Amino acid sequence: MKLIYAIIRYDNEDDVTTSLTKHKFSVTRLSTTGGFLKKGNTTLMIVTEPERVDEAIDIIKKECGHHQKITINMPYVSGSSMVHCATMPMSVDVGGATIFVVDVERYEKI
């Protein structure tokens, strides 16, 4: 068995899990946070047979395509109490997924 960890944007969570479930994959969702934009992410855990790993990854790729997002960094206070105002709009690549595939020594569904 293989365990797929897929870290995806929170915005893509429903589409990805719906599609994986439709294709008979068992999915566990964990809410996570991190990354450059400090936005909510979802980490999916998918256990499957080795021959279905590519199928699961293809579904994730289809639902989590890269696209551009315009974001504005909000003012913040540094450690020296100095206010930084970098409020210029900037284009950032969003979407996609970070995927890890690991071997599972033992798997039981009770």
Rank of each mutant, 00 (worst) to 15 (best):
S26C: 09
K24L: 07
P50M: 05
M74W: 00
C85K: 14
I4R: 03
K22D: 07
M45T: 03
I60H: 04
R52C: 08
S81F: 04
I60P: 02
I110P: 09
E51I: 11
I99G: 04
S81Q: 07
I59A: 10
H23G: 02
L30P: 00
I72F: 01
L3D: 03
C64K: 02
C85F: 00
K24C: 07
G79M: 09
V102L: 11
L30D: 02
I7H: 01
E63V: 03
I59Y: 02
Q68S: 13
E108I: 15
H66A: 13
P50G: 05
T71L: 07
K24F: 00
P89C: 13
M74R: 14
R29A: 11
T28W: 01
E13F: 00
V92N: 13
K62L: 10
T71I: 14
V94L: 10
T17W: 00
N41R: 09
I70V: 15
T43A: 15
Y107F: 10
K69P: 06
T98P: 03
H67G: 07
I70E: 15
V16Q: 04
N41K: 15
G35S: 06
T71Y: 01
R29H: 01
S80G: 08
T42K: 10
E49Y: 05
M82K: 06
T28N: 12
E49M: 12
T43P: 01
L37H: 03
S26K: 11
T33P: 00
S19K: 15
E49N: 13
G95H: 00
A97H: 05
Q68F: 10
K2Q: 10
E108M: 12
I8R: 06
L44G: 10
V27A: 07
V77E: 12
H84K: 13
V47G: 08
K24D: 05
N73S: 13
I60C: 07
N41A: 12
V101G: 01
G65R: 14
E49S: 14
H67A: 11
G96V: 05
F100K: 05
I110T: 07
K39S: 07
V104I: 12
E49W: 06
T28A: 15
V94A: 09
I99L: 03
I8K: 08
M1I: 06
N12I: 01
E55C: 06
A6W: 00
L20T: 06
M88L: 11
D14T: 07
S80W: 01
T98K: 08
A56W: 00
G40Q: 11
I46E: 02
S80M: 08
V94I: 14
I60E: 03
Y107V: 13
D15T: 07
H84M: 11
H67C: 13
N73K: 15
H67Q: 09
P75S: 10
T87N: 09
Y76E: 04
I8F: 00
M82V: 11
V101Q: 03
K22Q: 12
V77T: 14
E13I: 03
E51C: 09
P75L: 12
H23I: 02
S91M: 15
